[in-house]
Amino acid sequence: MSIEVVFGRHLRKFREGKGLSQEELAFRSNLDRTYISLLERGKRRPTINTIFALAKSLDAAPSDMIKMVELELATDITGREP
């Protein structure tokens, strides 16, 4: 599975966990709602600036967002958690 798809899936989990709509997350992070949608569907690659903006808006550490992706990708490759 691609990094973009995995990141998007976790972004959606973070967003829904905070009870935010895509529109509200976009407003808080100064991004466009359609861009949030594209990220969540794995159609775009976020820049480091985007990851930091999203993390701040979600009250999360950027490293936590990346770690979730890293763990899932490592699990997909090996079939077990690292």
Rank of each mutant, 00 (worst) to 15 (best):
M1R: 11
S2V: 01
S2A: 05
S2T: 12
I3T: 14
V5N: 10
V6K: 03
V6C: 07
F7G: 00
F7P: 01
G8L: 07
G8D: 05
R9I: 04
H10G: 02
L11V: 02
L11A: 03
L11Q: 05
R12A: 13
R12P: 03
R12D: 09
R12T: 11
F14R: 05
F14I: 03
R15K: 03
R15C: 04
R15F: 03
E16T: 13
E16R: 13
K18R: 14
K18A: 13
K18W: 06
G19C: 08
G19K: 03
L20E: 01
S21W: 01
S21V: 03
S21N: 02
S21T: 15
S21M: 04
Q22G: 13
Q22L: 01
E23K: 06
E24P: 01
E24G: 02
E24R: 14
L25N: 05
A26M: 04
A26E: 04
F27K: 13
R28F: 09
R28Q: 12
R28M: 11
S29A: 15
N30K: 13
L31S: 04
L31C: 06
D32K: 13
R33S: 09
T34Y: 03
Y35H: 13
I36L: 00
I36R: 00
S37N: 09
S37I: 01
L38G: 03
L38W: 11
L39V: 08
L39F: 04
E40G: 02
E40H: 07
R41E: 08
R41C: 08
G42Y: 01
G42P: 09
K43R: 14
K43I: 06
R44V: 03
R45F: 05
R45K: 15
P46I: 05
P46F: 08
T47Y: 09
N49W: 12
N49K: 13
T50N: 11
T50H: 08
T50Y: 11
I51E: 06
F52E: 15
F52K: 15
F52S: 14
A53T: 05
A53G: 02
A53M: 11
L54M: 14
L54Y: 07
L54Q: 08
A55R: 01
A55H: 00
A55K: 03
A55M: 03
A55W: 01
A55F: 01
S57P: 07
L58A: 06
L58Q: 06
L58V: 06
L58P: 07
A60I: 07
A60R: 09
A60V: 12
A61E: 15
A61Q: 15
P62D: 10
S63M: 10
S63W: 09
S63Y: 10
M65N: 05
I66F: 13
I66H: 05
I66G: 05
I66D: 04
K67H: 12
K67A: 14
M68R: 12
M68A: 14
M68I: 07
M68W: 04
M68N: 10
V69G: 00
V69N: 01
E70Y: 12
E72H: 00
L73Q: 12
L73Y: 02
L73I: 14
L73S: 06
A74N: 12
T75M: 12
T75H: 15
T75I: 09
T75P: 00
D76G: 05
I77N: 08
I77F: 14
T78I: 10
G79H: 08
E81Q: 13
E81C: 04
E81K: 13
P82C: 07
